[in-house]
Design a protein around this nucleic acid. Structure first.
Length: 158
DNA sequence: GCCAACGTTGGC
DNA sequence: GCCAACGTTGGC
């Protein structure tokens, strides 16, 4: 199947692109939304490329690139009663929550902000830009990915 | 900190 | 199975 493209949101106070760069690879634990889980479980394949998005920060926006390095497997934090992501309804033999591993690819020279993205022709249909969109794992088209990557990797003076 | 937009829960 | 209440997300 053709490679797919995604956008993954994170609050940088919890986990940032700098954290990913330092670690190299991370398990995308803690997703507790069915639609986001379905994207990880059913959609994400090894080598798929990811726009890494910082939310609840100033400014929110895409800050770098990552890649799927392991396809979906059960999220162990759901089984851990001491974890803030604990879900007693998820059992090891019938895991409700799945995650993927993501590896670091690149950090943009500057945040490509949500405000800037809204002004870019060709991105108007991105789920991210839709009013009320909260999904933390979203699909991105190949064209949208190419446009965002190009703008993000370009060094800009501000 | 506010609050709109969603998703989930639970009473009925 | 409906839907009100509640909790969360996340931009502003």
């Amino acid at each position: 199947m053709a490679k797919r493209y995604w956008l993954m949101k994170t609050e940088p106070d919890a986990f940032s692109i700098a954290d990913l760069e330092r670690l190299g690879v991370t398990a995308w634990e803690g997703v507790r939304n069915y639609q986001a889980r379905n994207h990880m479980r059913d959609g994400m394949k090894l080598g798929d490329e990811v726009l890494f998005y910082h939310s609840s920060t100033k400014p929110p926006g895409v800050v770098g690139l990552a890649r799927v390095s392991r396809e979906s497997y059960p999220d162990p934090t759901a089984f851990d009663s001491k974890s803030k992501y604990f879900d007693p309804k998820s059992k090891p033999d019938a895991a409700r929550w799945m995650m993927v591993d993501v590896e670091y690819v690149a950090t943009f020279p500057a945040t490509l902000s949500l405000e800037e993205l809204r002004a870019v022709p060709g991105l108007q249909d991105m789920p991210l830009l839709r009013k009320g969109q909260r999904l933390s794992v979203q699909p991105v088209s190949a064209d949208e990915y190419r446009i965002v990557k190009k703008l993000g990797m370009r060094a800009r003076s501000r």
